[in-house]
Design a protein around this nucleic acid. Sequence first.
DNA 1: ACACAACTATCGGTTAACCGATACTTACTT
DNA 2: AAGTAAGTATCGGTTAACCGATAGTTGTGT
Lengths: 97, 97
Amino acid sequence: MACCDLKGMLTFLVLWIINKEPANGASIAREIEKRKGCKPSPGTIYPVLKDLKEKGLVTVKEKEYHITDKGHKELHAGCSLFKKIFYDVEEICRKCD
Amino acid sequence: MACCDLKGMLTFLVLWIINKEPANGASIAREIEKRKGCKPSPGTIYPVLKDLKEKGLVTVKEKEYHITDKGHKELHAGCSLFKKIFYDVEEICRKCD
DNA sequence: ACACAACTATCGGTTAACCGATACTTACTT
DNA sequence: AAGTAAGTATCGGTTAACCGATAGTTGTGT
């Protein structure tokens, strides 16, 4: 990963959601809406999915996006970095609503 | 916050670091290096600090950046959103190194 | 078969996060 | 006092994340 590259959290989130449960684009968008409070437009979600597909991180089976082994590894790596960077965020999160 | 705007994690991280302990620009950069594995360039870190200053989220006292009340609130809000979006990331993080 | 809704997809444009290079200032050493 | 290291700051440019608009596709009900 490039230095100080903290963009791409949406891609990470999408991969995370697919990892939890295979889904189609529309329901992924709905899940993001549930988490974020606003729904990503089609112009946001589909390019992300296309990108993930091209990178071999997800595949389409029966009109649903599934995570691949490679995707699993990538997600794992992302989580590790994430944890390394924000290992102590829980300190304040504990105080949050 | 704008819809699906997950950029700006660096700003969030900087604010988080200052919240933990007042620091000057250089030591903030070093702390980020420790967490991320690579050091943000001056051209990255100082504009971020300037931005935070202009928004009234931090102040400079004795050549160190301190978080303000407003900064605290912003950080708290960020953490809440963060937690709402990634409430279940710990599931996989538990399995991480 | 037709109409309507839900889903998928692409494209152009905007925005801003981030970086490298550079220059200036402050502190510390001898 | 001079020289060197550390810290601060700015500017221009690049990149890519994200969005809105638009169009095509698939499915469903009647």
